[in-house]
Write a protein that binds this DNA or RNA. Structure first.
Lengths: 212, 212
DNA sequence: CCTGATGTTGACACAGTGTCAATCACTAGA
DNA sequence: TCTAGTGATTGACACTGTGTCAACATCAGG
């Protein structure tokens, strides 16, 4: 009877999700480095050893969390684009959505930062899932760029949209990171974080705006 | 006789430097996370316990390394600016110097990335030194921006140069990071890393260029 | 009731960090 | 020259966290 194997499969998937959610909760509370596998196990109400049945190691668990974060991000980006017609407005909305994502789910943004900073080893299954997730996020942006070029709201000579996409990613992610991590430093220099982000978006529009 | 205390002070400083250099060497070889205090001690030919006399903990040692990296970076930026007259050319040269810095001293760039990503706790003496170092790096860029505005090679309506400076930092650092960490990913999508950086610099110039 | 497969765990070995009392080296004053 | 004292240096320890493994538990199917 295969429906039994099926049920087991589902339970396994559910437990896997429970572990991830427990880890996410702790991540949000104290930052990834302070999270121990023991705490994750306790929070998910199972033994530490069992975690290693579901995840190769702590890094593997982080990849799973990052995958979910990227999924959430893509969803938010799609939502943001759906609210605008013009390509350039979609891109701006994506930038705004990214900043909001950081504010509302700081730990997920942190996971993205780690993914962003860590160089790929390739081979881990969960890491590949991460890469796929990252690609699909970029795909949303690329689409908006194409639309913008088509509707004339973005200059046609920006070059390869995918390359530009990487630039936008670097720009937005970096700026948000600076704004959040160095907020004290920034404030000390007499800059207001809100206006920094605001002008950042303006600069972004300027980058893409067609010559008048 | 105070010249004895003086000599001791110098020896202490020298030993401190030896520790840092040992740590840097290991950092370059295997990445910071894989470096253990024991290895640092062995490489510097002293006991592990002594490290903790000179540095509060491993993170403190990293701050010291980062401080030196930022110093090196500022030096390279100053060198780069000195080779150009026009403000915009200086800024472009800084971007290029940053990329070169990554290629030649990957571990120092990595240290900068960690500094960039880690949020300040404020209080550690070496961390404050890092912040000061970071500020002086930014100061070099700000100066070139001002010059560019003065000589007309950079549009005057970019807004507060310091804010723009943060944007340039975010943009350049993020792009270099992506180019190096995700090179496989990028290549797989049919993009050549060299041209990505090239076009990134072009985009940077476009950002700052005065309307014709 | 037995059996085999799958799920689950306690206990272990290992690696790395940070601390501290004890020891060593050397200077200055008796 | 001897010795007290100060600062440099270390071995050994306690602690925390990771990943593994043999053993135990559960349960469907014969």
């Amino acid at each position: 009877m295969s429906y039994i194997a099926e049920r087991r499969e589902e339970e396994k998937e559910r437990r896997r999700l429970e572990i991830i959610e427990a880890a996410e909760q702790l991540y949000a509370e104290k930052g990834w480095d302070s999270v121990t596998m023991d705490q994750v196990a306790r929070t998910a109400r199972l033994s530490r050893a069992l975690l290693y049945v579901y995840f190769k190691d702590k890094e593997d668990l982080l990849f799973a969390i990052t995958g979910r974060a990227l999924e959430e991000l893509r969803h938010r980006f799609e939502q943001a684009t759906s609210e605008h017609q013009l390509g350039i407005d979609q891109v701006t909305a994506i930038g705004r959505a990214y900043a909001l994502f950081q504010q509302e789910n700081p730990f997920q943004f942190d996971a993205c930062s780690r993914y962003h900073a860590h160089q790929a080893h390739l081979g881990e299954p969960n890491e590949l899932a991460c890469n796929a997730g990252g690609d699909s996020v970029l795909a949303v942006i690329v689409e908006s760029l194409h639309r913008g070029i088509a509707d004339g709201s973005i200059r046609a000579d920006i070059g390869d949209p995918l390359k530009v996409c990487f630039m936008l990613w670097a720009f937005s992610h970096g700026l948000i990171q600076i704004a959040t991590n160095k907020s004290q430093e920034i404030a000390r220099q007499g800059i207001e974080v809100g206006t920094l982000m605001e002008e950042g978006r303006a600069m972004l529009r300027h980058m893409l705006a067609p010559g008048k």
